[in-house]
Design a binder for these strands. Structure first.
Lengths: 238, 238
DNA sequence: AGCGCACCTAGCCATATGGACAGGTAACAG
DNA sequence: CTGTTACCTGTCCATATGGCTAGGTGCGCT
């Protein structure tokens, strides 16, 4: 039943055939691209998917650029990706947007390590159609989810749907963009610097530091810098 | 709680033979127990190890209790484990200590998600002989590491060795135990409560809250509560 | 009994912080 | 031109925080 595991780096089974934008023949397999920086996860996902009937992993990628190249080269039906590929989470969101625009045939399913209200909502806006948590998925769910996503349906892990619904009803406009400068200040706060030290460090006044922190606090719904650091961490900003 | 997960093929390779404390015959395989709450990781690690010559995965476990049962039942040569099995990291460390005491034949290799100076040093003290980061390992390293650990050698991922050395030379006595009360206060700090609110919440005075925070700050080497939250998160305390 | 440890309390003081106000600039899109 | 956005600055004030010293209790261990 197993023994399906191929070589680690994985020979690419097929040269890309004609990839029409419409639905493919029911007999052809769902072609999947797996993107994760972690080998163990890549191999694990590959092993799980390849024991799912009608699904085949055509390539793996470990960086944002590699994902783009691989999508372009293989035109997969589904991209299973952990957004945390570089040190810039925002980059992952942009990537999703770009792929849904340029390769509408390729559906995106996020396989995340952590649940971030921030990221989920943003991802949905950018055309992502699936969001699962690594720690939550059962082995068989993953295969099913991929096929469901390919059919254009939305798949969300338990609790995630509720989260999104709750967020949309929330008073604060979540998903509000965190600016570069704010992030810069935030990182220094996390390192325990005072407003004065931060100000001196990046050549702005203490007033401005406080200004950025006020905005950050509003965007993340925090009222103390300790909470700010906590929520920012949970949101994958640090 | 959960049961021990058996092999997918369903065959339990061997009823446990006599397991002598000394080295086993060079022809017998290194018998591995994989413990991780995440299916993808378990399958990934299993796939990687099973393609390594001379290594066989005999069981999987997803909870602390299941690990203990499985070690007792299978007497594996190596336990590959992510300490983050429950919501109590400390429990994982205790588990390691117990296993090295009661089953000295079984070597322990930690396969962690995050690098925590705190945990690494503590783990070493309790007889753990390997520490790798999921995000760092190459596929072939994992197999090698398991065999190396079985031979009684210590394996540490890149950077981890330096970390340990640096820690030991550090002025602050790292690995100093964080008490229950401190942890309780810490969690409330992370949620953005003021000292006064925390005091009222757990029926102690503000002075005591500050006392606990002072001790925590010393133990984690932080000087501001934002930094405290940051480091505590990195140390897996939150 | 003596010891260490977790836990709790008090007071003092300089400084940091949060929250509010009311502005300014530059770049860029419609 | 007008509106939006990121970015920057200032002032005001109440409160929170960090750092310190100097105690107290109860518990388990030797």
């Amino acid at each position: 039943m197993n023994e399906v595991v191929r070589t680690a780096t994985g020979a690419i089974p097929l040269a890309r055939p004609d990839v029409p934008l419409g639905r493919r023949s029911p007999h052809s397999k769902t072609r999947v691209l797996v993107a994760d920086r972690n080998v163990i996860i890549r191999i694990g996902v590959r092993a799980i998917l390849e024991r799912t009937p009608g699904v085949a992993v055509v390539a793996e990628a470990t960086t944002y650029d590699a994902v783009l190249d691989a999508v372009d080269e293989h035109g997969p039906d589904v991209l299973v990706i952990d957004l945390d590929l570089g040190d810039d989470t925002t980059r992952g969101l942009q990537l999703c947007e770009e792929i849904t625009k340029r390769y509408p045939h390729t559906k995106i399913m996020i396989l995340a390590s952590t649940l971030s209200e921030f990221v989920v909502v943003d991802a949905m806006r950018r055309g992502v159609t699936g969001y699962l948590l690594k720690d939550d998925v059962k082995a068989d769910e993953l295969g099913k989810a991929v096929r469901t996503v390919q059919d254009g349906e939305v798949v969300m892990g338990k609790g995630i749907g509720n989260l999104v619904a709750h967020s949309l009803g929330s008073h604060r406009d979540i998903g509000e963009h965190v600016t570069d400068r704010e992030l810069e200040v935030l990182k220094l706060v996390a390192r325990g610097l005072s407003n004065k030290q931060i100000a001196a460090g990046i050549y702005i006044t203490e007033s401005t530091v406080k200004f950025h922190l006020q905005n950050l606090s509003r965007k993340l719904g925090a009222h103390r810098r300790a909470e700010l650091v906590h929520k920012a961490t949970a949101a994958g900003l640090l």
